[in-house]
């Protein structure tokens, strides 16, 4: 039997809502969800497994209806959903009282329960998350009972591979936005189909798997990348010789070659010329830059400074503050002081 595995869709989310590309992101999330639904038809999937995170937090009735409509449009695919860490189930949740389409099984039970789909000979064991932290002790309750191929569905981003039970054909994990595969494909955290925040770098998509009824083993697993905007972190190492123009030029080149539609986070490291200020304002107008982290430090040669100013404030100041084990805070203070003293020295001259 063939199945699609996805999770952490965050349907309805609006990441970077206060940035210029915010609305695109919200739309992209819904579109990727649509693509997965289409893929169920295209791949003739018997089953679509959503291991948590279908919604972004607490869904509105409209969102539940939209999603159900999408599910209802693929009546030949059984859709199995659990509530994840970020969209936990609670007693009055519209998800619990909603009349889902016939092919949808939204398992709202917090205890592990087993569902046997006789027409495709598959047993699905899963449990939803409530507001409390995932209790890993519960995993001992997760056991296949039917004797046919079985899939375990859970949402827990802190999952430790060693705690996962061994006797399932496939473990569909959710909770972590980035995809990873363990146990040769039998334990898969499929990740979000769309990156949700700046930390979700790398590729995103969904998994398609095949299970053989007879041998009860996973016979195929492939990752389908979804064409989407990426979050990319660029690290720039500056030197005392770098100017703001250099840095801007390099970054522009890099961001253009990687794609100006992507969203960038820029980290600046290293020692820079003390007067150099990396504002990078031009870049924020041309490209999508979500954050600029400036970890550069001014390149003062403290030894030289205290040599050049042995009997004046700069020298005294450096001598006073510069120690072997100087703390980060004191170093910053020293740099601020030196900068101020040197800058105002010129004025008096």
């Amino acid at each position: 039997m063939k199945f699609l595995h996805t999770s952490d869709i965050h349907y309805g989310a609006a990441p970077d809502a206060n940035r210029t590309w915010g609305r695109e992101r919200a739309k992209a999330i819904k579109e990727s969800f649509g693509r997965i639904i289409e893929a169920c038809v295209y791949e003739k999937a018997d089953c679509l497994i959503i291991s948590g995170g279908l919604f972004d937090g607490r869904p509105t009735e409209d969102e539940v209806r939209e999603v159900n409509e999408a599910f209802a449009a693929i009546p030949d695919t059984r859709v199995y959903v659990i509530a994840g860490e970020n969209d936990p189930v609670f007693s009055s949740s519209p998800v619990c009282t909603f009349r889902w389409a016939e092919n949808v099984i939204y398992n709202t039970d917090k205890e592990f329960n087993s569902l046997y789909l006789s027409d495709i000979h598959i047993e699905i064991v899963g449990a939803s998350n409530d507001r409390n932290r995932f209790d890993t002790d519960r995993l001992t309750d997760a056991k296949p009972v039917q004797g046919c191929a079985s899939i375990l569905v859970i949402s827990n981003s802190q999952a430790d591979e060693s705690m996962m039970p061994e006797n399932f054909t496939y473990i569909a994990l959710g909770g972590d936005h980035k995809p990873y595969v363990k146990r040769g494909g039998c334990l898969v955290n499929c990740g979000s189909p769309e990156p949700i925040c700046a930390d979700d770098t790398g590729k995103h998509g969904y998994y398609v798997g095949e299970i053989d009824d007879e041998s009860r083993k996973l016979t195929a697993l492939k990752f389908v990348t979804l064409p989407t905007v990426r979050y990319i972190t660029l690290s720039v190492n500056v030197t005392p010789a770098s100017t703001e123009a250099d840095v801007i030029r390099n970054l522009k080149r890099e961001m253009t070659s990687r794609g100006s539609e992507n969203i960038y986070q820029i980290k600046l490291n290293g020692l820079c010329k003390p007067e150099e200020d990396f504002v990078l304002e031009d870049l924020t107008r041309e490209f999508k830059i979500s954050k600029i982290l400036n970890f550069t430090r001014p390149d003062y040669d403290y030894m030289q400074l205290s040599r050049e100013h042995p009997s004046d404030m700069v020298g005294f100041f450096v001598k006073e503050m510069n120690r072997e084990d100087i703390s980060e805070l004191d170093r910053k203070a020293m740099n601020f002081g030196i900068n101020a003293l040197l800058k105002t020295a010129d004025e008096r001259k």
Binding site: D312, E347, K349
Partner: peptide
Amino acid sequence: GNRSLNCEEAKKYL
């Protein structure tokens, strides 16, 4: 100690 430095200015700068 040195004629060309003045810390009032420096402090205002800070």
